[in-house]
Design a protein around this nucleic acid. Sequence first.
DNA 1: GATACAATCATTGTATACAAAATACAGAGG
DNA 2: CCTCTGTATTTTGTATACAATGATTGTATC
Lengths: 224, 224
Amino acid sequence: MTDDLTLNMNAYLPLRDVVFHTLREAILKGDLKPGERLMELQLAAKLGVSRTPIREAIRMLEQEGLAVTMPRKGAEVAKMTLKDMEDVLEIREALDELAVRIACEKITEEQLKKLIAVKEEFEANTKSGDLKKIAESDVLFHDIIYMATGNPKLVTMLNNLREQVYRYRVEYIKNPKNYPVLIAEHEAIVEGVKNHDAKKASGAMHEHVANQAAAVKEIIQGQE
Amino acid sequence: MTDDLTLNMNAYLPLRDVVFHTLREAILKGDLKPGERLMELQLAAKLGVSRTPIREAIRMLEQEGLAVTMPRKGAEVAKMTLKDMEDVLEIREALDELAVRIACEKITEEQLKKLIAVKEEFEANTKSGDLKKIAESDVLFHDIIYMATGNPKLVTMLNNLREQVYRYRVEYIKNPKNYPVLIAEHEAIVEGVKNHDAKKASGAMHEHVANQAAAVKEIIQGQE
DNA sequence: GATACAATCATTGTATACAAAATACAGAGG
DNA sequence: CCTCTGTATTTTGTATACAATGATTGTATC
């Protein structure tokens, strides 16, 4: 744990939630590395709280798949093997397709406008080269589709799945040679949704996620 | 909470896990009813433990969607509206189809044999009329397919989704007029899997889940 | 020098204590 | 009779204390 890990206390939330969000962020950003132990006393000291909220936050991380605990040995950040990632991506493919199919039926005019706007924003951002903005607009693009399903449970699950790929996906976005493909894929998805053509949209989404999946797998293999 | 809620202490597990499983069972069986408050002191007294493991178990239930907590107000058993159930079933449909598609590719000879055996066991059980056995063999039937995917994350998710429908599904199984349909659907699924025909298998699974979905929805509407 | 064993230390598991917020209720005032 | 308000009680949130387990280190013996 090389990081400072300071709490963000602005809102009035139970400490367990603040700790939970802090630790989750740290894990997703890579500040807490896979396999790193999550020691209660240490985290409590670092975050300036007692062990109780730390423990509860760990229980929550555990259920989200971001931490693993061995009884009497404590918790550690979940390791992601290539196989784990493939498993996640397999599910994500199916659910992202489902989401876009539903979105084709249910999307409102307003959401559609927003989707098109964000698609263009994404394209602009790839030109500026600001990685953070690129990632943000990509996330937003998919969020709009998720929201358009009107299925909050699906949204939660997809967010959770996306989270798990997060660390590696950044690498994918770093490489500018992927931009044209990404843009074309987004374009195809929008085209499908706009025409309420579930077949086209889900096909495009399938390709989009599958390409990302392939790239992420390559990145992981490169790291091993 | 009309129930006794005694702990099952046979295995050596942390109390939080024992409490978690106990509460989960109670919720799924309907002993703890939707909307019922989960008061820490009360549960702690009833289960003979302190508040700490109770709290941690509640955090876990929360992440599984079985409990909802309002800060400073406490937790209660999650209510399932018709909409919630539709949302869950929508996801389940997609993932069950995914599972059976993968199973078509990956299932081993041994698993296939087992699947056929359990299918027949299910048929036999419908004839005997033992509800518990019917439900068990139905669960097992689907479990074999889940396991055949070789994707533990998918298995976990599907189990979780299934859990959420559990309370209502029992009603579905109670009605003997559904048995011929269920048997035919299982037959079609097995047929598809056996021939590694993903299209047929996923079509059959789609119908299977969709039928159940329709029935569950009817039951809920009847209750409201 | 290697191995077995004991003592010590670090860390988790559980219980309890204390603080703060929310709720329930009773009494005063209109 | 209703409403408002202040107080008592309940309940959650957080911290701390104690117990038990597991890891580590050091020492004695072969």
